[in-house]
Write a protein that binds this DNA or RNA. Structure first.
Lengths: 249, 249
DNA sequence: GTGCTTATATGCTTCTTGCAACTAAGTTTT
DNA sequence: AAAACTTAGTTGCAAGAAGCATATAAGCAC
């Protein structure tokens, strides 16, 4: 039997239950200049007026969580995505996946808000800073820290609204973990890319230098790369071969 | 700018928003007879009256998701847990961690219910079938399938309430993934255990045989094991040494 | 052509993993 | 008591993966 001191599992009246708002927040990540960057939007309301925050919104009736995340991505980042993996007009998919759910009772001072966080990996050229109220920021996660740090192009550091710095930390850790046993590393690259670019993606996510020869051997042996026979152009110096990610063998 | 055909991100009236119930469901896993088993409870209400389901409950006011999961575990499984990792009276912690959030609009036919799923790993001797309305079932996840299968001791297969078979599939896959780069393998064992038992845990989770010599080498080299100098007793045949999991080096 | 830079390949060493055979320590059988 | 049996634990070897250094190749500038 359950301990007698505890309240019963079902409270006698509905007042004990919570009926929270549920939102979806999306971590849109891209790679620029060898660093991970995240798309943030400026808040126009209290609390955290004028703070930068993750794009997000309340879920709607009849909409799944995945659909809500895709909608937020579409409206606040101008990106078409779907959890399976859709192809955008350009032909390259956007990777979108549920990350974690944040539900501490006081994470929003106004009311109980539970946020289901998603993350999206987007090729750099497709992230547009849709309005003056959205921008890309450099993302840095130090070892052992449970919040990520955010910097603008000038190196100025920012505090984020709500628990969003914590959400970013969870996102970076998740991506680091999945890098080795999934193919998410390709999601930040255009359809055709060089091995050097692929290595840069891995190095940015893991925040450490990798051995060139080993990296090439492993990638080529994985069977995930399809050589296109084409090469970079106008690089100065020897051009690298372009590869394509081979989905499904 | 966002496409003009889409509704605005913030609907004009609140009728578009959903204000769902939020519940926590807990996947309590243990190991018995070389198989993963899961604790299920029998439903006493419609829908899915008399179906077996995951223990769960609505979140309460002022309670975090982690706390709600621990409360469900306490009341419906008689287990003390906390997400960090607490020690129960016996001295062994219960591993509890958020798994994934399920929010399809029709997963509960009565109303919109979003469920934040957790999973707990429990040493076999501590799982009690608390009442006649709870029991352990064998858990099997076939490759490529997106729902898990549930069998009782006689080998009879059951259908679960709601999307709970899908939740179980996600749980098994998550644990499989984390087995190699975390120490969750120890959470299903008592404080002192043999290498053979540890290997059995890994084999049950991965559902494949492992090589004895390689497994031993890797485990001993990991530095996670502390020999106790003590040995099994009354085993018939040569007794194996007992090891302890060394938390934090 | 030379010199510079980056791409790509190769040889070597080290570490890991899988496989098989071996020794060790108990109990049971004869 | 000795032999047989079963599981615990070790060791040697081969195949594979990963780190490191070096060599060759291909483009550009001069």
């Amino acid at each position: 039997m359950p301990p007698s001191r505890e309240p019963p599992i079902e409270p006698l009246d509905a007042a004990l239950y919570d009926r929270p708002s549920v939102t979806v927040d999306v971590v849109v990540l891209t790679l620029r200049g060898g660093c991970l960057e995240v798309l943030l939007v400026r808040r126009k309301e209290h609390p955290f007026l004028n703070y930068w925050s993750l794009p997000g919104g309340l879920i709607w009736k009849g909409e799944s969580l995945d659909e809500a995340a895709a909608r937020v991505l579409r409206h606040k980042a101008g990106l078409e995505a779907e959890v399976g993996r859709t192809r955008r007009p350009g032909g390259h998919p956007i990777y979108l996946e549920q990350l974690y759910t944040f539900g501490n009772p006081n994470r929003d001072p106004r009311a109980r808000v539970i946020s289901v966080a998603y993350y999206a990996l987007v090729e750099q050229s497709h992230v547009r800073e849709i309005s003056e109220e959205s921008a890309l920021f450099r993302l840095l996660l130090r070892d052992e820290e449970n919040v990520a740090e955010i910097y603008d192009a000038k190196g100025k550091k920012y505090s984020l609204a709500f628990d969003h710095a914590e959400i970013l930390a969870v996102a970076v850790r998740r991506i680091r973990g999945k890098l080795s046993y999934t193919s998410i590393g390709f999601e930040l690259l255009p359809e055709r890319f060089t091995l050097r670019e692929l290595q840069a993606v891995h190095e940015a996510i893991l925040q450490k230098k990798l051995n060139k020869a080993s990296f090439r051997r492993k990638m080529l042996a994985s069977g995930l790369l399809q050589p296109t026979g084409e090469f970079e152009r106008g690089t100065g110096f020897r051009p690298a071969e372009l590869y394509r990610f081979r989905r499904e063998v």
